[in-house]
Write a protein that binds this DNA or RNA. Structure first.
Lengths: 142, 142
DNA sequence: ACTAATTACTTTCGATTTAGAAGTAATAAA
DNA sequence: TTTATTACTTCTAAATCGAAAGTAATTAGT
């Protein structure tokens, strides 16, 4: 079971995802539709297999992801975001906004997802990403 | 200087604040109007002095906070958020929303800031917090 | 059917980071 | 002038990270 440092909801969220890797795994799932251990291992940031295994276990325990098999494949595990995991979408979005407005100078080669260009329909855009992920995820659950 | 893992803006933001403590220091400043080393040390989560010193140094280097003296006091250092630091407000807000919607069951004693109750005027509320912090911070800069 | 490749990890181990405790130097308060 | 406070630093054990290699089961290729 988890050991929360305090009763502060911010501290508690950081007790769950406050490290350098966890939100990147969720990004891989939500934005890049990655599903397998191998997919996550191949991410741009080159997470070590031992750390990835530990994080996936943690995310399973926390109910942020679920683990599935395809009917015709006994080897590959499919990881999918739950609603609890999907609701990190606004957090990820705001972190993108922060980087794109504040980090460009120190990090000129950083990619531009253009999140600053649609700050008005923000919540609709985020909901769109969530909806399309749910469609994607449901295709595995048949 | 900073060493970004990748060109992904999400990964880059986590390279700056992706740990268990940094956003809590920013919370202390933004929400609780804390300003001094001692203030941060006394926070509910009991950060170790060595870690606090390292994080404040890092936040200074990153231009997220500035360090000031009051004219009549040579001992106390006043830390204030820059605009770069203030723009973490939406991230903090969304982490609060996430906790309050997803963590109540596993963490019954968690405080309720009621952020879910004003999801419509979200950006106005966040701007209000930023504005009132700026007023607060400016009072130190005279 | 046999062999090679792939997937999903686990194990090992040195390096780095964390976190608690204690210490210090300068300043401020009593 | 003594005591307390502030803002740290230093030390150290413990925990975690991360790179590399290893393993077992499964799947793909010939």
């Amino acid at each position: 079971m988890e050991n929360f440092r305090s009763n502060c909801p911010l501290a508690s969220s950081l007790d769950i995802i406050g490290d350098r890797w966890t939100l990147l795994i969720i990004r891989d799932m939500l934005v890049l539709n990655k599903t397998t251990f191998k997919d996550f291992e191949n991410s741009e940031e080159k997470i070590a297999a031992s750390i990835l295994a530990a994080r996936l276990k943690w995310l399973l325990e926390q109910g942020i992801v679920t683990k599935h098999k395809l009917p015709d494949n006994k080897k590959t595990n499919i990881y999918l975001l739950t609603n609890k995991g999907l609701s990190f979408a606004p957090v990820i979005f705001e972190l993108l906004v922060w980087s794109e407005t504040n980090l460009r100078e120190t990090h000129p080669n950083m990619e531009d997802y253009g999140v600053n260009s649609f700050l008005q329909n923000k919540s609709a855009r985020i909901q769109g990403i969530i909806d399309s992920y749910q469609t994607f995820a449901n295709s595995f659950k048949i």
